[in-house]
Simulated scan of single mutants.
Amino acid sequence: MIRLLSTAALLALLAGCGDGQPFDFEDPADAPADGGDAGGRDSGGDAEDGDDADDGFGGDERLLPGTADPDPDRSITRFEAETEDGGGFVRRVTLLSGARLEVDNLAFDGTEPYRSDYRGPSTLNGYAVFQSAAEVETGGSEPIDQLDYRAIYGESINTVRVDGERLPRTRFAVVRTGDFSNFGFGGFLYERNGGVEIPARGQAAFRGDYAGIRVFDTISRHEFTTGDIEVLVDFDDFNASDGVRGTLSNRRAFDEDGLEIETNTSGVRRTDLSDRAILDLPTVRFVLTDAASTPNGEIVGQLNNLVVVDGKAEPYEAGEYFGVLSGDLETGGEVTGILVFESEDPRLEDIRVQETGGFTAYRD
């Protein structure tokens, strides 16, 4: 079920942690020296002399750029690595009062913060949705048209005090635009404030809401998606890493104005009575491996699914998940993260689509 809050109610909830608190990380090489209290927001120590800063994430090349030398007792921030298509350019977002979001490092996205009262949905599945301004006045005869960037912002219902400041325990942001002839410029970030207590034994289920943005190559267009996220963790095994499973299910899609798109979630491709192809959004599954988690409470891995076409199962969507566990997982806690995956849209000939979405899930 899609959960829609009014913009006022949602932003009031988000604003409970204070106005203008950014989460950002410009470059791993710029990480401040380690000198804060345990659980502080600083990002760990500088890279050793002679070390490549890109390898400074706890020695795990699977992890995204961000916090150097991560620790289970400290805050962690991650952001999308730069891609050939333009991903990874967003390194800083700041939630402001009045349903506004400040986004840094994207050209032609207006000169003012993004707002939630332009056209299109202002919330998706309990997360705030923001849009950049359509044009910029320059004092000349004509305003300059801007690119249509959309941002999804979510933060935990729980807060934690870090270095005397009350912050959401976790939060994420996704920024994309459909105004390029490829996937275009954008980015995502997610973070944990404070640390994590990981049990030595047992298993846990985390369930929550997901919202995403779909952009296309070779055509200018974007869509929104929602779904239910489930993340299961086995703290007993594997011996080298906690086992992680997960699903994205009950998926729905919406056009840029927020109107629902007809979808097929059965996993068996079909058309309507006019032989028009219908968008496939079957359940996406995390691939179970023996190296999906780190001692710092981070999770990373592959995800995929299949769709049956003419009686034959074929690979359909594939990509990656990234996330971070937070809080005392013995009795509660949560996980927040990002899914990024691609597929060939069945409604369009030889057109690929990239979906990027964020989630927060709480221990069941």
Rank of each mutant, 00 (worst) to 15 (best):
V175S: 11
D179C: 04
D179I: 00
F180D: 14
F183D: 08
G184S: 13
F185V: 12
F185S: 14
G187D: 12
G195S: 06
G202E: 08
Q203V: 09
A204H: 07
F206P: 08
F206C: 11
Y210G: 09
Y210D: 11
R214G: 04
F216K: 10
D217S: 14
R221A: 14
E223D: 15
E230N: 12
V231R: 08
D234I: 07
D237L: 12
A240W: 07
S241L: 10
S241Y: 09
D242S: 15
L248G: 05
S249Q: 13
R252K: 15
E262D: 11
N264H: 04
N264T: 03
G267Q: 02
V268N: 06
R270C: 01
R270M: 05
D275N: 10
R276T: 05
L279C: 00
D280Y: 01
R285M: 03
V287Y: 00
T289S: 15
T289Q: 11
A291R: 12
A292E: 13
N296H: 11
E298I: 02
I299S: 04
V300Q: 09
V300Y: 08
G301A: 07
G301Y: 04
N305G: 06
N305L: 02
V309N: 04
G311F: 00
K312H: 02
P315D: 08
E317V: 02
